[in-house]
Amino acid sequence: MIKILSVDDSEAVFAYVKCCFNDDQYFLTHAICGMDALDLLKKDLMGFDIILLDWEMPQMNGPEVLIEMKKLGVTTPIIMVTTRNKENDIKLILESGAAEYIMKPFTADIIQQKILQLIQIET
């Protein structure tokens, strides 16, 4: 089973992400903000196989959460999922340690394939 942590303040986006992983192969956990995600990771640093991270969130934005996750020692592949689609945005996030970058809107096959590819590379 692939354990995914989705960090996104939008319930609608999370509902769509849930549709993308609507089978027994995946187990999805939702954190509605960066702080919640960091709390979950502090409890269990290796608790997830993949982290999906939104950019635009109140309090802490995605890039800030990404930096905090790296400080915490998170080695789980992190995928930034965002409407931002400029080359410099992608560059910044990859240089900050994200494993992948998904531009919204995306389709189920895109997110599934990126996750499977990252997991196969990891194993």
Partner: peptide, 20 residues
């Protein structure tokens, strides 16, 4: 399109081989 480049292409290769 942005959907086509996300299908199968890593973000590293997207940046390396494409411009927007």
């Amino acid at each position: 399109s942005h959907l086509e480049v996300q299908r199968g292409l890593s973000s590293v290769r997207l940046l390396k081989y494409f411009t927007k």
